[in-house]
Each structure stands twice: as C-alpha cells, then as structure tokens.
Design a protein around this nucleic acid. Structure first.
Length: 513
RNA sequence: CGGGGAGUGGCGCAGCCUGGUAGCGCAUCUGCUUUGGGAGCAGAGGGUCGCAGGUUCGAAUCCUGUCUCCCCGACCA
C-alpha cells in the first residue's frame, strides 16, 4: 500500500544481511579490499569512527587514563606466558616469520629463506602481554599504582567468517589496560569502564544497551570476570558492543608486574582491560539504519546539517549561493550537543533533488534545500532524516524562515539524537520477554518462523564447569547464547530454567552476532 | 575450517550448457530540451570477462589450481 519510493533497493524485512551490506555500500562507508576479511573504510565511515573516537577518548581522559602506544608486533616468547590467554588466541594469529623478500626468478617475490626471523613476531590480537611487559618495568612501588593506560590501535584476529565492521580480520579499537594495588581497586576500574561504555553507547551512539556480567563460558581468555554492554539489532539478534575485564593477578604473574607495598612486601598487581571497536559502527547501522539507508545520530555525524542549493547553472546561481552561504554561516555559529554545529554547503554540480538522496543514504541528520522561491520569501526547506516521509509518500519538508531555521537547528539536532535513542529503546523493550518458565516456552518464543525473536530474560542458578557446559550445549542446539547477567535486574524469585534449582540471578538469552 | 552459491566497464546483471576477438540497465561525459524537485531525448567514453596454468587453429565459455566475496554451520569482539 506504500507509495514511498525508498532510497535503497532492498528492505530490511526482505533480507537483513543483504540490506546491511547495501547500507554500507550506498552510504559510502566502506568497501572490500581484496585481502581476506579486511576493508577499506571510506571517508563517511571513517568520519563516523573518528567521531566515536573523539567522544570516547574524551571520556577515557576524563577518567584520568593516559594514552600511549605499543608495538604492532609482539615477540612470540612474550606472548606465551599466560596459558589460558594464549590458548584462546593461538588459533587465530597472524605471524611474521621473515624480514626480506627476494626474486623467485619468475618475476615474483618470495620471502628470503636467509632472512628468517630467529623468533617469530605475532601481529597483536590484543595487547595484554606487551603492555604487561612494559608495566612490569614501570611499576615498582605502590606509589606507581594505579597505572591507567589506553591505546588506540589496530589488531588482527584471523577470523573464519568475516562481516564488514562486525567481524573483520583487522579491526580498530581502543584498549584500556590498568594495574592496581588491590582487587577492590581493579574491580572499581572494571566497573567504571563498563559504565563509561554504557554512557558512551546510550548518549553518543544513541544505542540502548544492557550492562552486565558475562557467564563463565563467555569470559575473555585468562580473565577472572568479564562484563559487557549488549545491544539489540533490528533483526532481534544481540551484539556485544563493548567489554571490560577484571584479569585478577594471573597476567601480572605472567608478566611479573610486582610492587612493593606500604609494609615493604612484594605483591602482584591486579590488572584490567577494556575495549570498544569499529564493531560499534556495525551496531550503529543495524540499530539506526532504515529502508532509505543509514541514520547517523547527530553526535556522531561528520556533517550534521547539509545544505543543498537548487543550482540551475544560470545567472541566478550566484545570489542563491550567497543566500545559502549566509545560512551556512548562521548554522555554523550555533552549538548543539555541546559542540559547534558541523554544517556542509554542498554546492557541487548536480541537481539538489538527486544529491538529496545521496545524503539520505548517508544518513546526514538534517538536509536543507533552498530554491530561488525560498530565497525570495526568505525561507528554507528542512528535512529530518529520522522522520523522512509524509503520509502521502513524499519527503516531509518543513518550510521555515531562514533565521527561524538557524535558531531551530540546535534543538532539532538534540531532538533527533533523543528520538533515535527512544525509538531503538522502545523496539528493544518491546522484544524482550520475561517470565519464561520452561524450555518449551523458550522454544516457542524463539520459533523458527518468527522474524524478530528478540531476547528472553530468564532465571538461572549460575551453574559452573561441566554443569554450565551442558546448559550451553542445550542452548547451542537452539542457536541461542547467554548474553549477560544485567546489573540492574530484579532479584531472582523462582526456579532455574535449566536446572530446576533455586535461581540466583537473571540472564539474557538471545541469538547473537 | 566444512557444505552451498558467486566473481564479466563505477553499480546491478545477461552471455558460459552447445568455444569463433563482449552485451543490457543504471551511473558517467557532450549537446539540446526541461526547471520546486530522485528529468526527457540524442550521441559518446569506459571492460585483456578475479588471477595462474592447461586443452584448442581459437577460451568469458571446457579442464586444473588459486584468491576474494555471499549464505548455512563450527569458532570468535
């Protein structure tokens, strides 16, 4: 019944996976690189990641954490010291074995057998070991603690199955690494990072998340405890959007991070690590994207307002451009969401009506079109990307006076930011089921033909070891996973869904990326 | 890494079975027309058919290998 002609050729409900790729391509975010699992991030995708970096970096620094940079290559011997950690990553490691190429005599190049490295270098999959090595030198006394470090870097994990932004062989992230003089202080930092991620996701990415503890089987290799923020995508699947780990003293033991305490004794430091990656861009797409492309929350939009003058390639253009430039200057002088408004006057050749759809696909929050008639009457036509269509299937332009529009921009951007969040939050909350009392009810909720199964919050007795493995197998047979134990859940008040014993807490069950 | 599918101008595809020096739509460029909204008509440019071998007088097409992508599993942020 819809007369809307969407900006994309594929709808979410027809093929969510294809739609996801179409958004990335149509919005000019990234493309294939020819190297397995690696992507070229194009300016619009990079601009969004840069905004994420900027906002998250400010939060990291505000917590007193300092940025540093550690090498991409890690000596193999350095890496092997923490057993569980190594076992977790060994099967997906890229290894450098040579430092020179020679001609193969057939016009090609091969690694020079004479130039074999004595000790292979691994390409970092994460930097606990190499940062731990530095920490062991930097930490001598209790006065050196806490040591709070972060680095922005690329890492490589040789993944079997890759998807742009969600799981690439090389990805970009920040990894925080901290060392503390006590379990309590390290735990405080672990939870601080988790809360920082929750605030970043919800306030900046407009991504509603559930912060909680991962079950034992989902812990980071070598960690004592792992916490995550989990977000629901538009196909109902869960996506882990950030993690924070309390590593206990095992990494300190492996790297020999010891300090002299106030009484003169030697103690092992307690360490943490926490990270958010380019995967967050994938979360943004699958949360805010629609059948017209991406919708970028204003806080993350490289350009928040795009002005499109309706140029005619005639003598009237100069006056129209002047009118548009005055609008641009007026908007640029405004502040929204705590920063100067980022506004672009797109005066490249081409019809405004055609260029409009490019910016719709990119998801610029506000698009303003100006024609000669607008100019004559001192008006502009404003289009909100988060609310694109009128009931009649036409773009929902609002015609405002130019000064009126300039004054309205800060409030409009804040409203779009809020609207994207509440829209996602309502969709998520509408698709969480509580009070599931049996496996049969769980199966019914996740029935195959249901397009949008969402999540189930169930009560459980927190089994461990083999008992947990058994439950995990039960879920795996249903393509389900445990997500996390939410920090703010109601106390358990019934039997465990899996063991029948008294439940001790609530945990989310969902399909996951 | 196992099973399935696919790589042909920027994008989407046809041609392959039955070998004979490449085609369509969109996009691009030029001209004319149009001009408050995703323009119309005409013309033009652009591809050694993923890569490497092989069969053949001749390979996008047949054979072998290899790389990359997509879907489903196993694995993982």
């Amino acid at each position: 019944m819809s007369t809307i002609r969407h900006a994309l050729n594929i709808k979410r409900e027809d093929d969510f996976a294809q739609w996801y790729q179409e958004v990335i391509s149509a919005a000019g975010m990234a493309e294939e690189s020819g190297v397995r699992g690696c992507m070229v991030i194009k300016p619009w995708g990079w601009g969004i990641w840069e905004r994420m970096q900027h906002l998250l970096d400010a939060r990291i620094k505000a917590a007193g954490v300092e940025n540093a940079y550690f090498p991409l290559f890690i000596p193999l011997g350095n890496f092997v010291r923490e057993a569980a950690h190594v076992e977790g990553f060994a099967k997906e490691m890229a290894v450098v074995t040579h430092h020179r190429l020679i001609s193969d005599g057939k016009g090609g190049l091969v690694p020079d057998p004479e130039a074999k490295l004595e000790e292979p270098l691994i390409v970092r999959p994460t930097s606990e070991t190499i940062i731990g090595d530095a920490m062991s030198r930097w930490v001598q006394s209790w006065r050196d603690l806490p040591l709070l470090l972060n680095q922005w870097a690329n890492v490589v994990r040789w993944e079997m199955r890759t998807r742009m932004f969600l799981r690439t062989s090389e990805f970009l992230w920040q990894e925080g690494h901290t060392a503390h003089d006590s379990r309590e202080d390290a735990m405080r930092e672990t939870m601080r990072a988790l809360e920082m991620y929750r605030a970043f996701a919800e306030e900046d990415v407009a991504l509603p998340v559930i912060a909680g503890e991962k079950p034992e089987n989902e812990r980071f290799p070598g960690a004592v405890g792992t916490w995550s923020i989990e977000a629901m995508m538009q196909d109902g699947k869960a996506l882990q959007a950030g993690t924070s780990h309390y590593l206990g003293t095992s990494f300190a033991e492996a790297a020999n991070i010891r300090f002299q305490d106030r009484e003169g004794g030697q103690q092992l430091a307690h360490t943490t690590s926490w990270g958010v990656s380019t995967r967050m861009v994938g979360a943004l797409i699958m949360t805010h994207g629609d059948d017209d492309g991406l919708r970028v929350p204003p806080a993350l939009a490289p350009q928040q307002v795009v002005i499109l003058p309706m140029l005619r390639e005639n003598e009237g253009d100069a006056a129209l451009l002047e009118y548009a430039q005055a609008l641009r200057a007026g908007i640029a002088a405004q502040s929204a969401l705590g920063e100067g408004v980022r506004v672009l006057l797109d005066s490249k050749p081409g019809k405004a009506a055609a260029k409009r759809w490019d910016w719709v696909r990119k998801g610029a929050p506000v698009i303003i079109e100006i024609g000669p008639r607008d100019m004559e009457s001192g008006k502009v036509s404003v289009l909100r990307r988060d609310d694109l269509w009128n009931a009649d299937g036409k773009p929902a332009f609002a015609v405002l006076g130019r000064d009126e529009a300039i004054a309205a921009i800060p409030g409009l951007l804040a409203e779009i930011q809020r609207h994207l969040f509440t829209q996602a939050e309502q969709r998520r909350d509408a698709n969480i089921v509580r009070g599931i009392g049996s496996i049969a009810e769980l199966d019914a909720f996740f029935a195959e033909d249901k397009r949008y199964p969402g999540w189930a919050e169930v009560q459980w007795s927190r089994p461990s070891g083999a008992a947990l493995d058994q439950v995990v197998e039960q879920l795996k047979a249903r393509k389900l996973t445990f997500r996390n134990v939410p920090l703010d859940a109601a106390p358990a008040d019934g039997p465990c869904l899996f063991t029948g014993e008294q439940a001790v807490e609530r945990i989310y069950v969902a399909r996951a990326y």
